[in-house]
Nucleic acid binder design. Structure first.
Lengths: 245, 245
DNA sequence: CGCGCTTTTGAAAACCCTCAAGCTCCGTGG
DNA sequence: CCACGGAGCTTGAGGGTTTTCAAAAGCGCG
């Protein structure tokens, strides 16, 4: 756990409401109730852990700012990144029902995380079916994304894998009202490798080749997207699996 | 859709109850209510489709007998199998909340499927929170399995991928009170390839090599498992992600 | 200014893929 | 009863994408 300041800011959970409304029609009363949920906010340092595989949790995390990834490791120590969360995303609401953590959670860069207690959230879900349904739907959309990642890693070559990953994150950011340009993804090539099932060396070469064609633009460690359309082509990206309205 | 006889057998949904109880403590009253859910039963011919990507659904399917797989295809027509369901598994309960189908569903071999109407199931979930929680938990366990498949395809070599796949199915069958020996997996090498992100040719060679070592035993198209322990070793299989009690 | 982390580059090797053909098994029909 | 055809399995040779190993260069930070 990173050191963190506790606060109680009213609009911290607005991003979560926005995310739920991407998939569900949430009544205003429900939205207000959600935002009033008691919560604490923590600043997570880059690379700090939110949870470790096997741990028991009693709180749920919501990403407010920054990026967080979910990963799992094989017995041989090979790491596979399974999800990359953007602001507004519920990070581990699955722990509400399966309190033992499957996966590790780590801050990609310095991030702001809101915590709500399982008890409080459970109470809210029980009293407001609209919220319960919206949360369930969000969990199922996440599952659809997990499946697309399997497709990505299993059936696309290196260029397409990376392009697809970037398209997805760009679109999910945009859906949250954010922009790749404003908050460019600070993934290292190591992390891209672990997300796509490749090696860092090959990611480097592929990124380089994509840059040469103009499909992406690079500034230091960051990747910008000058040509989303071209990238979409390369990645064979079809956003239906994101279930955006 | 395959031609199918309609019936109304009382114990058809017992497998589903068993599956839910792998993860949740279900009250007897809840279990009885579940089994009394109105349903029809259909016999699906080998390779027949239950649903196609993009279709709207109004019923949920439960696998009673046989095997069914879930798949998705890339824009280039490459197929990736995303899940293999065993008897007792709820197949598409996600459509209760996201009625537009993400994925295709196809019978691996002749299978028996029970259908319940969304309306009936929704009513049951609303009136019995214990069932609602058990179903949510089952969906989340499935999500955990999806993630492990990403790890499998992304970070293991061919031998380990296939071994891991076989270990998982064998264990899930066993948890349902079935046995690999009684109902050996009728996957073709093509299907194993699509499940593991490999090509059929390489699956053939790998299967052959696993057989030569005695890790598996083969009888015609079928794969038997004489030595689960050896396979577990090869696949780096750690069953925790299955959340079996 | 130097240390650590990340990126970059090169060369060789490995794993897996593609292409292609032959084989076995089995159900169907002549 | 045997020929035919299809589906799935097997095998070989060659090629390609990706990996491994190794080392150097760039960059940010204390």
């Amino acid at each position: 756990m990173a050191a963190g300041a506790e606060q109680n800011n009213d609009s911290v959970l607005a991003g979560l409401v926005h995310r739920l409304r991407l998939h569900s029609a949430l009544a205003d009363a429900d939205a207000e109730a959600l935002k009033r949920l008691p919560h604490t906010v923590q600043l997570m340092r880059q690379n700090s852990q939110l949870a470790r595989t096997g741990e028991l949790t009693t709180q749920c995390a919501i990403l407010v700012k920054g990026f967080i990834h979910r990963y799992r490791a094989t017995d041989l120590g090979q790491r596979q990144i399974l999800a990359i969360y953007v602001p507004g995303d519920p990070i581990d609401f699955d722990h509400l029902f399966l309190p033992v953590a499957d996966d590790g959670l780590q801050a990609v860069k310095e991030s702001l995380v809101a915590y709500v207690r399982h008890d409080d959230l459970r109470e809210l879900l029980a009293s407001r079916p609209g919220i319960a349904e919206a949360v369930t739907r969000a969990l199922l959309v996440d599952a659809s994304i997990f499946r697309e990642w399997t497709v990505n890693v299993g059936r696309r070559d290196a260029r397409a894998r990376i392009a697809h990953l970037l398209c997805e994150i760009a679109l999910r950011l945009k859906a949250q009202g954010l922009d790749f340009r404003d908050s460019p993804l600070p993934l290292t090539q190591d992390q891209i490798a672990d997300a796509t099932g490749l090696t860092p060396v090959h990611v480097n070469r592929t990124l380089r080749s994509l840059g040469a064609e103009g499909a992406i633009q690079r500034k230091g460690p960051l990747v910008l997207l000058p040509d989303p359309e071209a990238l979409r082509e390369v990645g064979g990206f079809d956003p239906r699996y994101l279930h955006l309205r």
